[in-house]
Amino acid sequence: MGEIILKGVTKRFGEVEVIPPIDLHINDGEFVVFVGPSGCGKSTLLRLIAGLEDVSGGVVEIDGRNATEAAPAERGLAMVFQSYALYPHMTVKKNIAFPLKMAKLPPEEIEAKVQAAAKVLNLANYLDRRPGQLSGGQRQRVAIGRAIVRNPEAFLFDEPLSNLDAALRVNMRLEISELHQSLKTTMIYVTHDQVEAMTMADKIVVLQAGRIEQVGSPLELYRTPRNRFVAGFIGSPKMNFIEGAEAAKHGAHAIGIRPEHIKVSTSEGAWQGTVGVSEHLGSDTFLHVTTEYGVLNVRAGGEVDLHHGDTVFLSPDMAQLHRFDQQGWALT
């Protein structure tokens, strides 16, 4: 079973502390997403769990065992890399069979498991090809296939979709979610894309500069961000922040309001502004409105017909207002 517990895990490269002591509990069967801006240490944290990097302090427990000193292969984890890391000289079949071959399984058993994995991942017709002859999505599936044949305690994904084009990314996102539903294995997924985090995760871990900013379900993070960083990172388009007198009215250093919680009107409203850019997506319209508080992002309906230079009035939904203090912590 794939329960993973980090106790005070630290990573230092020389003098630089990339990851200050971190405590984290990942339940069995959970889909956990590490999300954060690039360089926040999310990949390093994943590599610490995988055993590809040595921890500088703390304990990594996998399935109740202390795995801090265990070699990567002994941890029973499987990893899918950003570059897929397929073996270019081996066929798809041999790639998927490699971990089983290393585990010295009998050939018939290897064959059966490879066939089963290929069936699940729609790779049956490609087994004799080399990775170089496959498309990005297919390579991704081979990498996943190589991971699932081992029956790991948990899957580790290191930004697996960042090399795919937008349409394929949505597809693969779905496939990975479906895979999680059917396998019910613990998955840890690293990404910088908050949309991937929101759509796939049972639990999101938001990281910044190696620190955990907040842990919670996607909607928890969306509704009650603990601080300004999480509030700004989760949700698309980004939350608007207003400081100064307007914030003081609500008894806070800064207030935050999401673009979807602002009502647009051409006749009346709390704040007046001019439309700078309007992005018509069909289903939605994203407006960048210049007001006395700076540029605010507003999400309006698809039928809204506003263009550059139009004067609009904005009314925030007061129930959805987020208030933050001087240090950026959320006020309740």
Binding site: A50, L52, L77, Y87, F98, A103, R146, R150
Partner: peptide, 23 residues
């Protein structure tokens, strides 16, 4: 990453040399 993948797949130093580096 190929070497790391092989390490995760349970290949020891000699297997990594034979199956990944040598090819």
């Amino acid at each position: 990453e190929q070497l790391e993948a092989a390490e995760m797949d349970g290949a020891g130093p000699i297997s990594r040399f034979v199956h990944v580096m040598l090819p």
